[in-house]
Amino acid sequence: MKRVLVWDWPIRVFHWLMVVLFLGMIITGKSEEDYLELHIDLGYVFSGVLVARIIYGFLGSYHGQFKQGLSSFKKIRLYTMVVFKSLKAHKNDDQRTKRLGHNPLGWVMVFALITLLSMQLISGLFFTDDIFWYGPFYDYASDDVLELLAQLHRILPDVLIALVILHISAVLLHEVRFKEKLIIAMIHGHKPIGVTSDVPLVKTPRVGVVMSLGVSLVWLIWLFSLPS
């Protein structure tokens, strides 16, 4: 066996930043204490990280590119059947359940989380507590749209929490049942493969890093400069 790089440093940094920031937003958003200002700042920073990750999904390293996810969608049904058959047969180290990058169901979760997180962050830009704080885009939407976005902003956190729990459960299933070390791989970036296996060489494209971080930085500077 040999180890190869799968998740380069931008993918890993974006992933763990979103984990920490999401946890912070949930705690400050659901707390009975007055953490509104901190919640807003965390949401702004999260939006910057999400912008960077989306751009890197087009210009980044091989296994983190969205086109890999789109090409895997046609394999969702087959992969799901493999997982259930493996579970039914009590196979603890079924190689058919393992993928070097995200498996097809993993990509479904990636796209679902990015979509819903984007919706949550956008709706937050129009949100108000009706007392002290008005989102920077509050004045640019009708009352009906504002009410819809406000409802969305209240409902989506619970949906996202459910998805995150499902995501963690799937990771633990692969860790414990299929002996696939996903968590540590997202820390150091490497996964083991057979010595003779032919896999894509993962490189960190400079253009992808510069574009994702540059656009994210400009977005954050503009966002924090807006009156609220």
Rank of each mutant, 00 (worst) to 15 (best):
Y138E: 03
I168S: 06
E175F: 11
T128F: 03
H174Y: 15
I161R: 10
H102Q: 10
L173T: 08
K181W: 15
H167E: 11
D139H: 15
L182E: 08
E180A: 10
I165V: 15
Y140P: 02
H174S: 10
P104D: 04
S118I: 02
A170Y: 02
M109Y: 00
L149M: 08
T128G: 01
I114M: 14
L182I: 14
L160Y: 14
I114S: 05
S169A: 15
Q151L: 12
L121P: 03
L163M: 14
L121G: 03
V110Y: 01
Q151V: 06
Y134C: 00
T115S: 11
L116W: 15
V159D: 01
V176Q: 03
E147M: 13
F111I: 00
Y138F: 15
R154Y: 13
A112L: 14
H153C: 09
V159C: 05
S118Y: 07
G135C: 03
L173F: 13
V108F: 05
I165H: 05
E180P: 01
F137A: 13
F137N: 02
L182K: 06
R177Y: 13
I155K: 07
W133T: 01
L113K: 05
L173H: 06
V145I: 14
S118G: 14
V164K: 06
L166Q: 07
V110F: 04
S169D: 03
S123T: 08
D144W: 12
M109R: 02
H102L: 10
V145S: 13
V108Q: 03
M109H: 01
V110R: 05
I168N: 04
E180M: 07
H153Q: 05
N103T: 09
V108A: 11
A141I: 03
A162K: 05
L105Q: 04
V159T: 09
P157C: 08
V176S: 04
V159F: 15
I122D: 08
A141Q: 04
T128P: 02
V145F: 04
L156M: 12
F178Y: 09
W133F: 14
L152F: 11
E147C: 01
A141M: 06
A170W: 01
V171G: 04
H102S: 11
L182A: 05
S123V: 01
A112T: 13
G135E: 01
S123E: 05
L148Y: 03
M119R: 01
E180S: 10
L173C: 08
V164A: 13
R177E: 00
H174T: 07
G124N: 06
V145C: 09
E147W: 12
H167T: 14
P136I: 02
R177A: 13
T115L: 15
V110A: 07
L146H: 09
H174P: 04
L146A: 12
